[in-house]
Design a protein around this nucleic acid. Structure first.
Lengths: 225, 225
DNA sequence: CGCCGCGAAATCCTATAGGATTCGTTCCGG
DNA sequence: CCGGAACGAATCCTATAGGATTTCGCGGCG
């Protein structure tokens, strides 16, 4: 619960609280008690407040003045659709850029296709289908998409993609959906196009992947948000 | 310097410090002294620290552990190009969506073409060409692009566009470039396409505008960053 | 002349305390 | 039985103090 301190307590607390939320140790929408957190982490409320302020900018918690913080609520159906659209805009652009850079044969900090290929695989069906399995699946998936965004060479694009992750992550934890083989196949198609230096192909493959993932998640929305 | 307090000092300080940076009251890269800021704003360092933590997530300041905060440095040439690319990705998507929504005749919270048209105009050449003129120009320009992103109907897209603004704003303040009439004409072409419900046209018009704006800014980069 | 190390001052970071506000419960009236 | 007001407890917010670390100037050495 309290890892070896980095340099400032605030940074440690930030990571700890972020982990708590990402692991659903605090449920979406649940109130976040500052003093309780401070006691739990064995620090004073001051660095906790600072960490929460940063997490608010990250969209992981919401603040109501004079009434404390609450964990970010789960995505509504409409917000989920917005998220998909954002991913379509950002990640197809990233895939496209990766392919372009591969074609240009950029050295040094260019696209490491081998690394992408490694992360494209996902934990197989043999893996645990419980919480641990879900966590492993989504973590691996996150690494792939993160790596692709990083290899786009555009740091702002990378950051934008990273910013979207937590919401998707929380959603997946709440509605476990793992289609290992299918997702992995789609990932590999993206890598294929990137390796071939085919921007249009990479764009199309990523678009297909994101739309397919959307379909896989959709059943979890019933009537309400 | 100290507006009527909202509800918490932290929020007020956040706005104040943000304004200081956006007005170049603290130069890019300059160190931000927490105690000095607290004295200047007549508050204790505690809410100042909290505000700075949020501003760090916003990318307006950078933190070095145990060594305080510094105002975000000016964009390098490479980062400027990244910014342009991000705007191309995000804002053409926003323009496209606006046109689609207009064509779909969405009522209520749909696209307010008239409002867009109003903001498309920019302070004319008669205006002050000094700091105040630049500030007025960039503020109006920001409102237009902000409104378009808002009318896209995708809040995440809107937020992403808003996140890019400060960097562009600071850059413009440092290298004053106002081409009122040209920019305004380009804005109106975007509005025309949106009003006509022409997604491809809106995309193209926005792309042309952003690329033209890039060209207008480019001369300010010489050899270094 | 330049580089390195030392010491004092400035600055940052965390803990704690107290005033202000909100939340939950209880009690009362309808 | 239900709605609303009032009281107490919990919680938040800000200020302040002190320990820890960095920064900067200065003197000594190469």
């Amino acid at each position: 619960m309290r890892p070896a301190r980095r340099l400032t307590l605030t940074d440690d607390v930030y990571e700890s609280v972020r982990a708590l939320i990402m692991d659903h140790a605090v449920a979406p929408g649940e109130r976040v008690n500052i003093d309780a957190l401070a006691r739990q982490l064995q620090v004073s409320p001051t660095p906790v407040r600072e960490a929460l302020a940063r997490l608010e900018s990250d969209g992981l918690v919401r603040k109501r003045p004079l009434a404390g913080y609450t964990a970010a609520p789960l995505l509504t159906r409409a917000e989920f659709e917005e998220l998909v659209e954002m991913r379509l805009v950002l990640e197809t652009a990233a895939a496209r850029r990766c392919a372009t850079r591969t074609a240009a044969r950029e050295g040094a900090d260019g696209v490491d296709v081998a690394a992408l290929r490694r992360e494209a695989d996902l934990p197989g069906p043999t893996a645990d289908s419980g919480y641990a399995g879900i966590a492993a699946f989504t973590a691996r998936d996150a690494r792939f998409h993160n790596l692709l965004a990083e290899f786009s060479g555009n740091r702002m694009l990378h950051e934008a993609v990273v910013r979207l992750r937590p919401h998707l992550h929380l959603f997946r934890l709440h509605f476990p959906t793992t289609h290992h083989d299918t997702s992995a196949r789609e990932h590999h198609r993206v890598v294929d196009a990137v390796a071939a230096g085919d921007p249009d192909g990479a764009d199309a493959a990523m678009r297909a992947h994101l739309l397919a993932a959307r379909e896989r998640h959709l059943p979890y929305f019933t009537e309400e948000g």
